[in-house]
Design a protein around this nucleic acid. Structure first.
Length: 277
DNA sequence: TTTGGTGT
């Protein structure tokens, strides 16, 4: 009898603590993503199953099965005097991943440790703690050097150097794409076939939001114009099994995700900009 | 280097 009562009290406390955790987490999920974080279209499908990890300034949808983040979301805003702290020395294991993933798992694999939330932009906009979090292995995905160090880097530079100053606020959703055939590195981390990046400038009164989306395959040469890789968000949803921006009113969401609107972004002017380095 | 690699 007494045992049952104590058990009951324990359950009530657990429920209260769990509830508090959930509501706090839910607030952070909402604050770190635009109109709802990405969700798997089929919740029981292991291929798109992921769980949200909260970091300073960005959110990660982590897949323990693939050993990759399936999506990362963050907001970039204009800052007056952009400067970044020095690049940290190394990549760090994230204790939250089910399988321990370390920097060494990428060594001699032929793949770069590719940031999803980027070091420089996060440092400039969100500060040191955020910058350090971008070096967690749960923010890293295997990228071929010609992608990571060339055209993907150019895309990230255009976002932080041109789009953010021009529009004030840009929401970014980015991650890997896995086609049906599964290839893994020796460390069993799965190798993506391509990467996507979705940019959204939020709407204002009487003005709908605008989006620009890219898919870049691992096989790029690196000197292609960015405009070669523009796609609709619908295409990315089909290839990832994720649903983006699901909190938008349906008519807005449908329009945003089906249209390709590179003119409004004046992409042509920055499409062939060389990397700064 | 606003991307990364390798090594101790």
């Amino acid at each position: 009898m007494r045992l049952a009562r104590m058990g009951g009290i324990g359950l009530v406390f657990a429920a209260i603590l769990g509830g508090l955790w959930f509501f706090q987490a839910r607030d952070k999920w909402a604050a770190l993503s635009y109109e709802g974080m990405p969700v798997a279209e089929t919740w029981y499908d292991w291929r798109s199953f992921n769980r949200p990890l909260i970091n300073h300034g960005f959110l990660v949808g982590w897949s323990d099965v693939r050993g990759n983040p399936l999506w990362v979301t963050y907001r970039l805003t204009r800052v007056k005097d952009p400067h970044s702290d020095p690049r940290p020395r190394g990549f760090r294991e994230d204790w939250r991943s089910l399988w321990p993933i370390t920097s060494r798992d990428y060594s001699h694999s032929g793949f770069d440790r590719g940031h999803m939330a980027p070091n420089y932009a996060m440092s400039v906009v969100h500060g040191r703690a955020s910058q350090l979090d971008t070096f967690l292995m749960t923010n890293i995905s295997p990228q071929k050097p010609d992608l990571n160090r060339k055209v993907w880097q150019r895309l990230e530079e255009v976002v932080i150097d041109h789009f953010v100053p021009r529009f004030g606020t840009v929401w970014v959703t980015t991650g890997p794409i896995f086609d049906k055939d599964i290839r893994r590195m020796d460390s069993l981390i799965e190798i993506p076939d391509a990467f996507y990046k979705i940019l959204v400038v939020p709407g204002s009164v009487g003005k709908p939001p605008k989006a620009l989306a890219f898919i870049m395959p691992q096989t790029v040469k690196g000197n292609e114009p960015l405009s070669d890789f523009v796609v609709s968000i619908d295409t990315i949803e089909q290839r990832t099994g994720l649903d983006f921006f699901s909190d938008l009113p349906d008519n807005l969401e449908t329009r945003l995700e089906s249209t390709v609107d590179s003119k409004a972004w004046r992409l042509g002017r920055v499409s062939r900009l060389p990397s700064r380095y």
